[in-house]
Design a binder for these strands. Structure first.
Lengths: 119, 119
DNA sequence: ACGCCATATTGACATTCATCGATATGGGAT
DNA sequence: ATCCCATATCGATGAATGTCAATATGGCGT
């Protein structure tokens, strides 16, 4: 066997940690993976993209259903997943539900991948 | 209905595109989602983390099986997924298979999330 | 109050996926 | 050649997931 890595198992209360500097705990891996999982679907990436590129970085469901070519319930389902993951926020205005990109959410995830600085 | 977004559908030969500046094509969404999907599993995040933190950013399978608490075939399966996604590379040395972090792969994905510059 | 429109939830279904045991492959060492 | 060890592949299985039609909820007009 080659070098035995002892896996220091750093304890840290932040939910996520940079994945490149030191091994993370299984709990940190789970919460980080949950974020990636939310983005691990073509429809959801497309939805994020449309919302992010929209005016004011928000869009209503009626604008999101057609570009995806999916049914309205399915789009609502994906929006819920993205919202629960913290990437989108939901606001009702009249009969419409507007989903907006949560500022910094994508950058925060990006920093887990590349930037080695801690919180 | 609110503002109708026309979805410009940018044609571009690069496999992925920044998701925040302009709507992407369904094809780009699919390939981007495939990358996130590869990281959307706790075990795989843990594996990436261990490899990235290891000496020379590489580790052999024998060092990766125990920390995950999973069977060796399962670990091999996850390593294959990460390799096919382009995050890890495989090298045989003797009987051992060493998996190394592909330099820049995580940063490239991070740039899709945060950095608005194109290639 | 009623009806209409936009959105969310439910239930069902087919597919994908993570996992394991069993087995195959492949490289030393004897 | 043969044995052993490390790793990969195969087949099966149970759980999770994406999707839809049907239905529920909730708000605005009339």
């Amino acid at each position: 066997m080659a070098d035995v890595i002892e896996l220091p198992v750093i304890q840290q209360e932040s939910c996520c940690a940079p994945a490149t500097s030191a091994p993370i705990t299984p709990e940190q891996a789970a919460s980080t993976a949950a974020l990636f999982k939310a983005l691990g679907d073509p429809t959801r990436v497309l939805l994020i993209s449309i919302v992010a590129a929209a005016d004011g970085q928000e869009a209503c469901v009626c604008d999101l259903t057609e570009p995806t070519g999916l049914s309205q319930p399915t789009v609502s389902h994906h929006l819920k997943i993205l919202t629960e993951a913290g990437f989108l926020s939901r606001t009702r205005r009249g009969s419409w539900a507007y989903y907006a990109l949560v500022p910094g959410s994508l950058e925060r995830l990006a920093s887990l991948l590349a930037e080695p600085r801690a919180d």
